[in-house]
């Protein structure tokens, strides 16, 4: 879409009040720096921390999708781990029963599995908003969890299914732990960058702006010709796709899938990460995923009642920093600039 501002305002071009022109380049530079730092991490960190980065990549991708639903469309899902579970189990089934050993078809087919589940769930759930939407998604998440737990002959119940290391890009077939700390790390980083870029395009496109209209005032959005249910449904499908991809990464990095992946506490963790990072910012959920994983690792090793600490943190965020860590960072940055 062209920018009529430039054409219509001519020589008196209006600058954004917060000087977004400069801010955008700075943000881009920071993001590039972040990617370079992530690429250098395997050279400086111990294997323990590199492996800890795997769930970071997986959750970051899942949260990019979840935030399209939550931050941009205004729908909070309490059962989003359903799609992580579907993605992870699809990969496990495809490897165990289908003999598939290549990562790319594994991702594509697992995403297809997530979409197949998301279509009926989404068609029903997007007709509701607020707590009703949240509870419906929670219910479907728990249904899937019960299926995984009880249909032992298919899913192996609480024992789960072992997942082998798939071949990357058709030729990378490293064995042992080097697979995770080497090629798979960079594969996940690349996947995160690509999926973040795609999501950036989505949220900045007319479709993304339309979702924000739906979130702000669905009634008025309808009067502008926006089919609210349709747009919510599309957002739901996209978020499920991101969840599916995250599930495959988790399954491969853990080497095992089990029903807890789609348990309600996993969905709760996703919401926690989103709030921790800040759902009003594009990168907030990614920051939230990183902070959560690091915090969980540190606090768990210090105190067995780590959930108490997390509960207190969540309460503090909601009360004092509703825009999350990214909100605090932005506020701090603005103070420095002034």
């Amino acid at each position: 879409m062209s920018t009529p501002t430039e054409r219509t305002t001519g020589s008196t071009e209006v600058k954004h009040p917060d000087g977004k022109g400069i801010g955008l380049w700075l943000k881009l530079a920071l993001v590039l720096l972040g990617i370079v730092l992530l690429a250098l991490l395997p050279q400086v960190l111990s294997r323990y921390y590199i492996i800890l980065m795997m769930p970071f990549f997986a959750y970051s991708i899942a949260l990019l999708g979840l935030n399209l639903l939550f931050g941009y469309t205004g729908l909070i899902s309490f059962g989003h781990a359903l799609f992580i579970g579907v993605g992870a189990y699809s990969a496990a089934f495809l490897m165990r029963d289908g003999g598939l050993e290549y990562m790319e078809p594994l991702i594509l087919l697992s995403v297809l599995g997530a979409v197949i589940v998301a279509v009926p769930v989404g068609l029903l759930a997007v007709r509701y908003i607020g707590i009703y939407f949240g509870l419906l998604t929670l219910a479907f998440g728990m249904l899937f969890y019960s299926f995984l737990l009880k249909f032992y002959s298919i899913t192996s119940g609480d024992q789960g299914i072992r997942v082998e290391k798939p071949i990357l890009l058709g030729f990378i077939d490293t064995t042992g732990i080097d697979y995770l700390t080497g090629p798979f790390y960079y594969y996940c980083l690349g996947l995160l960058v690509v999926m973040a870029l795609v999501m950036w395009r989505i949220v900045k496109s007319p479709f993304g702006l339309t979702l924000r209209c739906v979130r702000d005032n669905s009634v008025k959005a309808e009067s502008l010709g926006i089919g609210v249910y349709r747009y919510r449904f599309y957002a739901f499908l996209i978020s499920a796709i991101y969840g599916g991809v995250a599930g495959v990464i988790l399954a491969v990095s853990v080497g095992q899938v089990d029903p807890t992946m789609s348990y309600w506490t996993s969905s709760g963790n996703l919401v926690f990460m989103t709030l921790l990072g800040g759902f009003t910012s594009f990168l907030g959920p990614i920051v939230g995923a990183g902070a959560f994983i690091l915090l969980q690792d540190q606090v768990m090793s210090l105190w067995e009642y780590w959930r108490l600490v997390f509960g207190a943190i969540l309460a503090l965020i909601v009360i004092f920093a509703p825009s999350g860590l990214m909100g605090l960072l932005t506020m701090g940055w603005k103070k420095v600039v002034r």
């Binding site: 879409m1 007319p206 702006l209 339309t210 209209c213 502008l224 010709g225 926006i226």
Partner: peptide, 8 residues
């Protein structure tokens, strides 16, 4: 203003 041009 743009929103309306995309929806119809």
């Amino acid at each position: 203003i743009q929103i309306s041009t995309w929806t119809r």
